[in-house]
């Protein structure tokens, strides 16, 4: 096992289920035998505000927060938020982004426009971008609410951890009745 700590950032909008996704990631890293730390902010930011969760794993992890400019993987649940947090990444980092837009207040009010061509803007800065239509594949898996799990599957493809570990982590963290759909959604994401 190398000393290198891998830094993952999960970003999106409060209420999108970022917490659970980061919990599954952390669980998988622990099951795979790594030291893990994670950190996020609850409270104010949950009322539809911008949210970022940090997950780090490696032989030994000290800080629970990813140092600025050292993010290795950005897991974006929403396009504008994905773009917002690019400065936290190192150059050449990997980005897995949900092709999904949630309008912030100024856009809803018609005062500002939701930026055009965000995917291109992201790709210009971070060429290793995997853009995923989470909703479409979630519906394919049987439930539109499993979009996050599709994304998680896609992120798992960027990490050197066995599939069985991921499946164990999901089984542990996802409620029984939603398990089948989520396992299916995960596999679809992982195959992308």
């Amino acid at each position: 096992m190398s000393d290198k700590v891998t830094n993952i950032l999960l970003v999106g909008v409060g209420g999108q289920g970022i917490l659970l996704a980061s919990e599954i990631l952390a669980e998988a890293f622990m099951l795979a035998g790594f030291d893990v730390k994670k950190s996020e902010i609850h409270g104010m930011s949950q009322r539809g505000g911008s949210v970022v969760s940090h997950v780090r794993f490696g032989a030994t992890v000290c800080s629970p927060v990813v140092p600025e400019g050292e993010g290795d993987i950005l897991f974006g649940f929403e396009l504008l938020e994905t773009y917002r947090y690019l400065p936290l990444l190192r150059s050449g980092a990997k980005v897995v982004a949900n092709d999904f837009r949630i309008y912030p207040p100024a856009v809803l009010l018609g005062q500002q426009a939701y930026p055009d061509g965000l995917a291109e803007k992201i790709r210009n800065l971070m060429p290793d971008l995997l853009l995923v239509d989470g909703l479409k594949f979630a519906i394919e898996a049987g439930n539109p609410r499993a979009a996050n799990t599709v994304l998680l599957g896609a992120v798992s493809g960027k990490l050197d951890i066995e599939e069985s570990v991921w499946l164990n982590a999901i089984e542990k963290m996802v409620p029984r009745k939603a398990l089948d759909v989520n396992l299916k959604a995960f596999r679809i994401g992982r195959s992308l």
Partner: peptide, 18 residues
Amino acid sequence: EYQAIQTEPIPSRPPNMC
């Protein structure tokens, strides 16, 4: 030397009542 990645200004996303 560390040069953070530069992004363009974008709309902020403050919290809001439900």
